[in-house]
Nucleic acid binder design. Sequence first.
DNA 1: TGGAATTCGTACTGAAACGGTCCTGTTTAT
DNA 2: ATAAACAGGACCGTTTCAGTACGAATTCCA
Lengths: 155, 155
Amino acid sequence: MIRITKQTDYGIVLLTHLAAHPERTFNSPELAAETGLPLPMVSKTLKLLAREGLLASHRGVRGGYGLAEPASEITMTRVISALEGPIAITECIDLSGECSHEQVCPTRNNWQRINHALKEALDRISLAEMAPPVNADSGARLVQLGRGISATPAA
Amino acid sequence: MIRITKQTDYGIVLLTHLAAHPERTFNSPELAAETGLPLPMVSKTLKLLAREGLLASHRGVRGGYGLAEPASEITMTRVISALEGPIAITECIDLSGECSHEQVCPTRNNWQRINHALKEALDRISLAEMAPPVNADSGARLVQLGRGISATPAA
DNA sequence: TGGAATTCGTACTGAAACGGTCCTGTTTAT
DNA sequence: ATAAACAGGACCGTTTCAGTACGAATTCCA
């Protein structure tokens, strides 16, 4: 159904949450509680994002996760690629070499066009844009949304 | 992996093949042979496309399939929707009503943007454009590609 | 220096979707 | 009447997905 996996969905929710509070770090239980997502999945997803370089992880007693880069620099393309591999709407697209049907399949080039259009759409949207404008009832007190969101230093 | 199913892929190959020979009809074995796809899948896919109104089917001894409309009128959006349901990159998009995470999930609106971008890209590509420009060794002699493909009236 | 908190890696399981096959019925041309 | 072809399911093996669990490594802090 041309659908992203749930884990990717989770990942984006988590990243936007982090993007909304760039000054502090979160550990897994905090994020799970604040986003309402199942803890084991949250943990699993964060690990993956850290391994892919989108999150900076900090081990130990007061460890946690934070964005590795400003939210405005992280595109949806990168997030999705990190969580589920290269964006390839058909199998033959990331097949580096030949396709066994190549002789009879005239559509390959056109799939590349479609794939490219999708990728461009995702490239144009950054994490900063996915984050909510301002969320009145959330626990955080957002102050400003200019270049870099600032908030009061945690409750 | 944001990927279409194989059946959809097959469907598009079949449709482009039909689009390249608008003057005649094909039965399943013919199409399977000429596209190199497995017959049972071809048959299954054609049935579905016919039920969804993209193909006109003709039963009986010399039956077969043909496009129900000119190839230039059939968009990729329609083809994909026919074969795998509405285009919804996340679960919450075609959920008509509420989403249980709605209170804590700020990304829903943005997913709609992304989904819309994808849909638009697919809307802009018609079956006629997916078909090969001209295929020297194919049986059909394409004459022109203006508004509506015209070909010589069958071999 | 030792213990506690936390991430890291990986292995495992149940459920669902996908890819593919097959069978039985219905329609139609000859 | 018969054979060719579509129509509509039922069915099954494999893979992927979602979720769980556990042990190891790291770091802070008392």
